[in-house]
């Protein structure tokens, strides 16, 4: 079926009254134009990578465009140590994983009550969640900052975890509720209830296994959003030992007398996890982006 439509499509192009030469020329030209655009899009990453393997002297002697004379990793290792990058990575991982798991659990509970239990006031809750999704963090920042100072949670990873998990739960509940109330197979619920399942069993033995793929997409979303978040860590995490990767890098850039190759090495270290996640999560993410748009 797909093949058929493809060949028909090709005929359409040969049907247009262009000579083969003109046709080939426009083809090559458009490929060249796209390639130029691609180079522009990737240029920043290429140049950051290139200069993370140079020493300061080499940079000033040959400029940013030259290939590194040798694969000099001293700049990178020094920057890693200066940033205490291992600690920052660990903090980011702990915060992102905790937020994702907590937000998924909360979203699941909420959506179970709203989407499957059809608890009253569903419309109100959904509008509320929609508003919570659009809320800028600035409008919560100061009271939360004040609260955390009062109860001794200021400058702990827990402060970021609790706040971000709640914010992401708004989106998670919204998405899961719409999944549960529309496409979830109702026969399964009926069968489980006839079997005498209680609510907890229904949730964990029926609903969770069936929605595993949606939950996986949610996990990836929450993980990446949390990893990328900057504003709340900036406000809540003041000490070096609690900071996340983006925060540490942004603060490092603010310091004076930073060597130019150290700066590029720091940016390079910041880019790396993104690339790793992209490779790891590519499939789930592609599914999720499409799912999100149809929602």
């Amino acid at each position: 079926m797909a093949n058929q439509s493809l060949t028909v499509n090709n005929n359409v192009y040969s049907a247009t009254k262009k000579t083969p030469l003109v046709n080939r020329l426009t083809g090559s030209l458009s490929l060249i134009a796209l390639a130029v655009l691609l180079v522009i899009m990737l240029f920043p990453f290429a140049i950051i990578t290139l200069n993370s393997f140079k020493t300061e002297t080499e940079y000033y002697a040959n400029g940013p465009m030259s290939l590194p004379q040798s694969l000099e990793t001293t700049t990178l290792t020094e920057t890693w140590e200066r940033l205490e990058f291992t600690t920052k990575l660990w903090n980011s991982i702990v915060i992102s994983v905790s937020v994702s798991l907590l937000a998924i659990a909360l979203s699941l509970f909420n959506a179970f009550a709203l989407g499957i239990g059809k608890v009253k006031g569903r419309g109100f809750f959904l509008v509320f969640f929609l508003l919570a999704i659009t809320l800028p963090n600035e409008v919560l920042a100061y009271p939360l900052y004040y609260l955390f100072r009062q109860i001794g949670l200021y400058d702990t990873r827990l402060s970021v975890i609790l706040t971000l998990a709640t914010l992401h739960t708004a989106f998670g509940t919204y998405l899961l509720t719409s999944v549960f109330s529309t496409t979830f197979p109702k026969e399964l619920i009926e069968a489980a209830m006839i079997d005498g399942c209680n609510k907890m069993q229904l949730l964990f033995k029926v609903v969770v296994p069936v929605s595993m793929s949606t939950l996986a997409v949610l996990f990836v979303f929450f993980f990446i959003w949390t990893w990328n978040d900057f504003f709340l860590p900036l406000i809540f995490l003041i000490s070096n030992s609690n900071q996340t990767v983006p925060l540490a890098l942004a603060l490092l850039q603010g310091q004076h007398g930073m060597v130019i190759t150290t700066q590029s090495a720091a940016a390079f270290l910041g880019v790396l996890p993104g690339i790793i996640f992209f490779i790891l999560f590519q499939r789930t993410l592609a599914r999720g982006v499409t799912a999100g748009s149809v929602k």
Binding site: L38, M41, P44, P246, A250, S264, G270, G274
Partner: peptide
């Protein structure tokens, strides 16, 4: 073309500042 989207926007900004 999607590539820039995979990194934190703050890091992207740091790259460009450089």
């Amino acid at each position: 073309f999607y590539f820039p989207q995979i990194i934190p926007v703050v890091i992207a900004a740091i790259v460009w500042r450089w």
